[in-house]
Nucleic acid binder design. Sequence first.
DNA 1: TTGTGTTTTATTGCCTCC
DNA 2: GGAGGCAATAAAACACAA
Length: 528
Amino acid sequence: MEESSELQSEENKVSNEKNKKRKLKTPAQLLALEKFYNEQKYPTEEMKSELAEELGLTEKQISGWFCHRRLKDKRMMKDEAVANGRQDRSSGVIQDRGSGLGQDSCGSSKHADYRYLDPKEVESHGLYNHEIPVADMAHGHRSRYPENVSEVDETSSESSSFLQERLFSQGQDPYDMEHSRHLTPNGSLPPLNPKGAINMGYKPSGYLKVKGEIEHAAITAVKKQLGRHYLEDGPLLSIEFDPPPPGAFECQSADPANEPYCVANPPLLNSPEISAAKRQPSHSSRYDSYYTKFSSQDSHMEGADFGSLHESDFQEKQDKKARQSTKQRQAFYGYTNHFPGRNSFSDLYEDSTGEASGYNSTKNHRMSTKQGVEGMRSDSASNHSDHYEEKKLAVKQKDLMLHGYDNINPKNIQRSENVKSKPSSSIRRSRVPVDTEERGLSARMAKEEMIKGDRKAKTTYHDVDGAGMLSNEIMVAKRAKVDLLQQYHVKQSSLTEMEPRKIQRSGAEMPSSFSEDETAETSSSRDY
DNA sequence: TTGTGTTTTATTGCCTCC
DNA sequence: GGAGGCAATAAAACACAA
């Protein structure tokens, strides 16, 4: 007995020493976790296990991460709710939300703060919005059913841009979204959490009891706000790709002063007809920023060969930048993530590699609001076909959800130039044995660990976010300057070999804003 | 370089459900 | 009672300003 306890303490000691210092998740791990989280807020044991295996983490870590992630969501939701509450008071949008449920203090001490929503009500369907105004929350229970997705969208207004960000950033691919939200990688219904399963037999309780009223009022308010046709039973908003009507980019609100987002990005927020894919938030989390890293890389890859640009360094810089930017966007932390459907591991795969153009639509749409507008202006219409192709591709990749980590391998990034011409190749490659994937991931992680060691010495990559947010749309505009960029990259590459860090810094300070943001900006602004 | 604030991770205890 | 989840807490990692 004593011996065993001693042994145990010994083990604990070892274990404690092992875990004495908390270990940050690698970007790849975070990316995968976020992806998965977007798809499943409450992963099943199997999922956790699989995820743990894939990421080289323990199930405990996975569980813990998800737990904290959910808490984080709640915090953000709460903060956003507070912020939005104030905003609504001034904007008058969806006021009923505040009057109705906002003050509904269910009294429950533990969950009172989050009375807006029982995460389990909506989580499994990726509609677990950060800041879900009560009115929007009212949709929570319905959001577990696909046909109601669009309604959720429509209840969100610019006042809840955060919600939109989440919704639309997640829903670049409505088809996909629809598909995967309800299908696990196995093709079965997404495993709701045990409680969630129960919730399927939904019985309104608490604030949900009054959801009907709120919901209606909210919808009405949004309708008013939108001033346009309200799709009640039609397809998902994001499915429609009708070209934006004239004036779609104009703020429809009579009081733009109270709608900062509207000012910044009118179409993104006020035009339900605009593809959700277009409505990408400018605010993103650290993770999102990280996503953009890949996006950025993709963009670079498309325009010029960045393979020589020490991708690891670049990545790390971006990661660092992402972290920095997080602070500035705390209030808008969003998930920026995609609809669950889009967030399969195949997406991760694409994310990480930048290989498949399919995800370009996702991450590229995670552009700044300004960029979003410009992107749409520049060639949103012309990209419809691309989007469609991407969707098809994404759907095909559904069954690959849990098998794409090998593609995180940086090597793949260098192949990204071939992506557009060989989208299917990425799919094929994703069907590699798990062990291979794990090796790839491990290699990647190892590399990242190495990178971390070097992190301190690196400088911030300025405006990487901007670069990362580069969208397909912007890419079109950007390509107009591809020659210029190539010239620059060539120079940079050569210089990088000589003095990587220094060059990268300068490259970040000057050109990132020039070659990415400004390029896209100026290009698109020229269009108008 | 250092101090401070923020974010992320790990741990623990409590609660709810089965 | 076990499992899963939430919340609180501590501490490490990180970012940033002085």
